[in-house]
Design a protein around this nucleic acid. Sequence first.
DNA 1: CTGAAAGCGCTAACAC
DNA 2: GTGTTAGCGCTTTCAG
Lengths: 337, 337
Amino acid sequence: MELAPARGTATIEEVAARAGVSRSTVSRVVNGSTAVSPAALEAVRRAIDDLQYVPNRAARSLASRQTRAIALIIPEQTDRFFGDPFFASIVAGIGEVVGESDYLMNMLIASDDASAKALGYLRGGSVDGAIVASHHTSDTFLERIADVVPVVYGGRPARVRAEDYYVDVDNVAGGRAATAHLIARGHRRIAAISGPPDMAAGIDRLQGFRDEMAAAGLAPAAVEDGDFTERGGALAMSRILGAGVRPDALFVASDLMARGAYAALRERGIEPGRDVAVMGFDDSSVATALIPALTTVRQPSRAQGRQMASVLLDVLAGRPAVHATILPTEVVARASA
Amino acid sequence: MELAPARGTATIEEVAARAGVSRSTVSRVVNGSTAVSPAALEAVRRAIDDLQYVPNRAARSLASRQTRAIALIIPEQTDRFFGDPFFASIVAGIGEVVGESDYLMNMLIASDDASAKALGYLRGGSVDGAIVASHHTSDTFLERIADVVPVVYGGRPARVRAEDYYVDVDNVAGGRAATAHLIARGHRRIAAISGPPDMAAGIDRLQGFRDEMAAAGLAPAAVEDGDFTERGGALAMSRILGAGVRPDALFVASDLMARGAYAALRERGIEPGRDVAVMGFDDSSVATALIPALTTVRQPSRAQGRQMASVLLDVLAGRPAVHATILPTEVVARASA
DNA sequence: CTGAAAGCGCTAACAC
DNA sequence: GTGTTAGCGCTTTCAG
């Protein structure tokens, strides 16, 4: 075919020659070994600089049996995933930490049929570890990947095994706090729009709602699944209203669904915040963009992403790592409730 | 630390032994060479299956001098990038095509300071090519990456060079069509909320607006930069209104900004769609979620993403590839204009 | 503290 | 068609 055009990049051999040392010494410098004399270190540094040397990743991986890459697995429709600012924050957090390290982030969109391929890829040793950004209990293939490489889950996995790592927020407490806020403001006919029952966050937030209602001796005015999407939130709201229920307050398990609920409410001439108190969950960009601004439960999504990445990096480095991190939430009172 | 646990993966050597052929033959099968006898092919296939063989990526890269990976470069704040459903579609499209190939997609968030690192990484030969998802004319480092690996730009780059590849939509025509639509509906006092002047899409859509207005003998009622963000759109709208301008129609250069404009309008008691016609751009999920539903210019974002990936894959495969792809847009009339 | 030597697993000429 | 032979560029014992 075609001769490889002189890759700008020099090899370790050339650096060694220029620095007047052996390959091994250059390798040691590059990998931060302490056992190098100041003189050699200086010489190598200069040579690297002069030659603009960047180690070849493939060669390094092959020899060290590490790829220095991690997979970000998105078991979801791409547009659905990225449509929620919550995930955007998670990814941002992960990206920050990974970006500071010398790891690479491979994005794997593992929708259904692609999952087999994704598994093969993970088994091929292309990455040292994986982060599963969000998942449903039905994603069985996700469990199998943990047999291949270390995995950190975003959100409590369906079945928690001792060797699993995950980073979650205290969704039950968040759900309780949100409900308590509503009750404290004098509301009694409180309905909930929940997340899907096959996701831990969906289950837990609803649990918190139910717990707090029960503790206050109240019965939910209605509970509808909004599937964590804007459209689902609108639909759920319509169902509640359509059934003739007229709540005086609403606990919506995600900001995005709350936006959908706002729309559905207004379609019936009900003004959110004035005619019905609305409480969201996430405190994503959606919350402040809404009018009236959404009272919501803040979860530290960016921090969650950061923590996921940190945990994985710890595991890969052989450092002790926390298996379960539960981040706190807090109610942020705005105009809607 | 810890001995590498027996990686489930077999090597090519083991496959060869089991199939009773040489490594080369296995390699030929894996790489789809035709020059293999049916018998050998069958034997190798079985061995691969039995052993669940997956080629080692690093070894392959090292020997073939190809990484089979591409970089998705996001020269933007992560949350900003992912906050716009337009980008979500682009990424979805890219992901589709890349997922069907045996290439991997490395996500590089190249915000400012990280760009040097990103460049070094690209120079290190970690990827065969790159896709730049969106960019500002100020991103000078982006030009330098094209010297290292083939690059496909999303949107016309600041300076188009003969060797560049890019996929764009016809933003000027889109802007014209949108404006024509407004004019045809009888509007005359038309204001525009534009994208940033350092992005091709921002410049071109505004150009289309100005062209069409001029052609109709109309002067813009106002033009404000909304920075392609929801907040920016709201701010721009407020500025227009604050200046005492009362347009009867609005050309907003992105759906997201239109959402911001809706909010700003309502804050002043002006109802979008009724009191002022609003035209968006993108036809992202935002357009239909808005109430009243946003009349907008549809751009085929997913197709754009797909095309970007296809072009890059073509280039990498040595196939002839189109340097400039301009996708068409079309006006989608809904309730707001 | 440093160098020599032996691969890591695969592809790609090159013979046969 | 198929096997043999060299590496790809790096890490990593193992001596010294």
